[in-house]
Design a protein around this nucleic acid. Structure first.
Lengths: 236, 236
DNA sequence: AGCGCACTACGTACGGTGTACGTAACTAGG
DNA sequence: CCTAGTTACGTACACCGTACGTAGTGCGCT
């Protein structure tokens, strides 16, 4: 398959098998699966070419036969988990409800694969499963009479909000993973610092915000509210 | 300053100078400035301890006197650029206009420092300049009669949208930076792939979206529209 | 005044990373 | 059958974050 050294190219343009030479020992699904397993277990940073190769049981450099650059491995991972959407159900006709449902499923996907928000970018949207996802999302909006550009814009906005929201949900938890001390210690130290800082007397509003006692914060409710707001704003 | 090896702690809790020993040769501003200069010029990934130290003109390990972990260097960078906001202007009283203005300034900031979206996280919000920013943003909403929690939620949502939007604006440009070939080549290859993929006949809506000719897309207008929608949704 | 200690400075070294390159084995197309 | 294109994989290089040892410096305390 063309030269050995790096050159521009999308991983999805490469055929998995060309016919010549020994049969490849692994499929793209195998490789993506191994990488996803590692990322789920130990975080995205633990996904190294060496580690993935070891997980597969092959030499490090053999991976480069399947995946010319590490970035392509990431594309494989994104595509694999996007493939977890069940797109078989037909849209109900109520685009607001359908999009909201998709957003909830995206959130669930991100909770299952906490590294996903970090690699959300328009670039990953055009993998095979990404395209299927986009097509399905557009089909949910068939009853909406605006340009496809506007539909994609709405979709990008929704997914952006979901990403932002879930990132915030997972922030401390994911951050702590790589740290050598516990999440409690980290939060205690940061909390103490914040209190000390606000004690200065400047930032009165931030102090008030911190002092505000609004019971247990319901993340779920905030998610729902935020999304409905965006969707409602499109009714007009 | 306490032990040498890593332990939980916020960089901002460390005094810059303790009195004992020789005067530090550099200030945090110097260090942050060097790191920001490198990131602006060659991307966030080019910011390594070695490179920053070289830029400053000191030995690599000397940096660790100022910054116990690389992550703290990132916090310094974020704080430095957040400090670029001019917060001296008093809020006008029209919170929608003021927040919109802040969002525009955030976008400008991100265009000036294209690595900023990548490190947007609630964690960085509590640096000294981050706190000043938050206090100012809250002061813009003084006339809004909701809890501070709701105000911070709105702010997070707005900043999330700005981050998402600017990320999309910068995606290909920033991605290409690290690649050994040009942005044109990359886009050509990806475009060719997309067309080939859509030619399959599945994904009819995506094909239509691609075929749609809506003149030059006005990113600026999209930004404005998206933000106003979110703001409007809060009027009720 | 002067001692001691906390601090600055920095070289070396270790274990990790992505990946360029060389080589050997293999298999399908001509 | 032969040979070209592929798979497989070990070695090697440049770079990364950073633990640790050591030397020099000057403030704070006695």
């Amino acid at each position: 398959m063309s030269g050995r050294t790096a050159e521009p190219g999308v991983i999805w343009s490469r055929p998995e098998r060309t016919g010549r030479g020994p049969r490849p020992a692994y499929s793209r699904k195998d490789i993506a699966g191994a990488a996803v397993r590692i990322a789920d277990a130990d975080g995205l940073d633990a996904v190294s070419m060496r580690r993935v190769a070891a997980e597969l049981g092959c030499g490090t450099m053999s991976l480069y036969n399947y995946v010319p650059r590490k970035e392509d491995l990431h594309e494989l991972m994104a595509d694999a988990v996007i493939g977890e959407y069940d797109l078989s159900r037909e849209p109900s006709g109520d685009w607001r409800a359908d999009l909201l449902d998709m957003a909830y499923r995206t959130r669930a996907l991100m909770h299952r694969h906490p590294w996903l928000p970090r690699m959300m970018s328009p670039v990953h949207g055009f993998s095979p499963n990404g395209l299927r996802y986009l097509e399905h999302a557009l089909s949910c909006m068939d009853s909406l009479e605006v340009t496809y550009g506007a539909k994609l814009e709405l979709l990008a906005m929704l997914n952006g909000m979901v990403t932002t929201f879930v990132s915030n949900e997972l922030a401390t938890a994911e951050r702590t993973r790589s740290l050598p001390w516990s999440e409690e210690q980290e939060q205690a130290v940061r909390g103490a610092y914040l209190i000390r800082q606000l004690a200065g007397g400047e930032h009165p509003r931030m102090s008030a915000a911190l002092a505000e006692d609004n019971g247990p914060i319901d993340l779920e409710a905030g998610f729902d509210r935020a999304l409905r707001r965006v969707l409602d704003s499109y009714v007009a």
